[in-house]
Design a protein around this nucleic acid. Sequence first.
DNA 1: AATGAATGAGGATTCATTCAT
DNA 2: GATGAATGAATCCTCATTCAT
Lengths: 196, 196, 196, 196
Amino acid sequence: MTQHPMSNAPRPANDGPKAAARNRAALVTAAREVYAEHGLDAPLSAIARRAGVGQGVLYRHFPDRTAVASAVLEENVREVEQAAAADGATCAGVLAVLTWHLTESAAFIGLLHAGVAVSRSGFLGYALALSERVERALREILPEGHRLAAANDLMLGVAMVSGAVTGPTREERERRALAAWRLLGVEVGPVRPFAG
Amino acid sequence: MTQHPMSNAPRPANDGPKAAARNRAALVTAAREVYAEHGLDAPLSAIARRAGVGQGVLYRHFPDRTAVASAVLEENVREVEQAAAADGATCAGVLAVLTWHLTESAAFIGLLHAGVAVSRSGFLGYALALSERVERALREILPEGHRLAAANDLMLGVAMVSGAVTGPTREERERRALAAWRLLGVEVGPVRPFAG
Amino acid sequence: MTQHPMSNAPRPANDGPKAAARNRAALVTAAREVYAEHGLDAPLSAIARRAGVGQGVLYRHFPDRTAVASAVLEENVREVEQAAAADGATCAGVLAVLTWHLTESAAFIGLLHAGVAVSRSGFLGYALALSERVERALREILPEGHRLAAANDLMLGVAMVSGAVTGPTREERERRALAAWRLLGVEVGPVRPFAG
Amino acid sequence: MTQHPMSNAPRPANDGPKAAARNRAALVTAAREVYAEHGLDAPLSAIARRAGVGQGVLYRHFPDRTAVASAVLEENVREVEQAAAADGATCAGVLAVLTWHLTESAAFIGLLHAGVAVSRSGFLGYALALSERVERALREILPEGHRLAAANDLMLGVAMVSGAVTGPTREERERRALAAWRLLGVEVGPVRPFAG
DNA sequence: AATGAATGAGGATTCATTCAT
DNA sequence: GATGAATGAATCCTCATTCAT
């Protein structure tokens, strides 16, 4: 049962190791898009296809499906952290960046619902670590006496807003997110991605 | 676990039409349990097996997998409606029943996240109809001037609480749900199922 | 990610449950042939294809690849048992039937080499049980004072003969098997399958 | 276990031609170990990894998987040849060295079963050549009138013993090998590798 | 000469769905 | 009306092999 190459088609170009970083990035981007369209259960093959790479490349870079999701979330989380670390960062501003990601990235919403939505996948561990990074970033910038300053209220509030973020378009999701923050009595700046 | 093929066991008696209703109920109950354990993506065969019927029976009663989920949710919604219609119903009491179902039934949480979680399955239509029934039931009993009385705030608040309902045990989920209601400034009675 | 039937081709005839027994038998036969041609590592899909059934049928009847091999061996072992239990059975006759299976069935050779060849597959348990059945059958008919009568010599001798059974054709394998028995000083009847 | 992609580690120095021989030897050693642990079907990548070289190096030295196995066997065979050629070599001593390799090296057992176990891989040719070298070495030292002196009995006997060599530990395999030789009436010295 | 990334075919396994009985 | 077997498409994952660097 030796493996057959069994096709005379010339093997597509192999751009060599230089492609590695590019491929990894392409996979993360593709995953983000595929997740947005099809949810976290989308087939890995769809991600590889959209990234324009073979299935093997996906498995080389990510040992399992949770690693792919984590890589995507990692970027979201990092942006929130950067927003919190930036000069002149304000609580409302960081929450605005957080909210942007909530409205933009289905996977990021999932992250905050990790306990519900993805606990089955063994993904919980990763998700919790990322969730804690979000919490740390927010906690740093939260002014004393903030509406969500009490021990467990911060991430509870975030989870609640994420629960409200539904709707077919990003605009609709933003509208609902802002209404949710208002209902919580929390001020949020203009929703936008972080741009250093 | 797997049924053994080629068993010589005599084919179970055909109990006639009376069995039909019993089978349907068994399927819905089984589905609820399976959903709780394995999530909404559980194989239909697992539901049929747990209900103790063949796969064909499932298809006889439910044309597709969304119909099964809807039947499960239907019961949750009906209990909320009954709680709202009961003599001496109070807003806090109905919300308590609603909250019970949120903490109890993974599928019911999904319902309130329908736009996010299940839009791909073509299930959205059903879910919205059910969601509207929940809204109508709550709206009826909501006192004027309630915290969530404004046009879109009612179901927004419910979605927010559902976003907070995560955790491995029902007790943990209840704790989080109550914390969420508190953060919204909404009073809720003791969480419990509706019992006529 | 609902499953697509996505082909308008009419589904092939489904012969219904009556086909179950027939299919199982076809699978075992196909497996025997495929094993003979390609060894115990042959793809399961090849077995299903040769049996003329879908892959699912194979998995319905056999939970894993070891179950398939066991079913094949089971038949070989049973024939040896039957030969031993038959009226007028002689030691040389039973060994002849055993030898027939050694020359005929690659899988059966593997059985006697279980410890070497297939221990990796978790198949060892099954194989040992089958091996013991062979031993019991032989032991029953072995005359006192036989060349292999000592405690561990019986199956050791069988294993040794099976080690000698190589060669491209059944005839060549038979020649070698007989030479091996001769070298052990054990008398064997005319090699042939058991025919009740 | 898996190498991490995108490591920034500097490319290992290219040690020039001297490295080539060292790499080849490392590959053969690695292959022997991997075969012992995972059998002859182990992935080539595992061998390269254990040898601490890239996949390409493996292919530079060995055109295909059979060449790797052959190189491993080559060493076994050579030791037998050396044992036979050594001053004061005895038949029992050479058989003892042969037996050592049988109990030590899964691949070597396979060699003697080549016709059965590996005929599919196109490996048969190599294996036969190696088998003949073993035969020549033994034949040279076999005293006239030896139990296995007759034309085809020599390698038949070896194959029979190899058929008996099963068991989880080397000690167990040795015990069985010795019992097999005894059953053949062939004297064997203390089992040990050849040490010039 | 070595590295190790990329390709992509192949094989395992799971389920939704149909249908003979 | 019920049963549960059969189908086969889809997905997961693993490697043999090639090749840019």
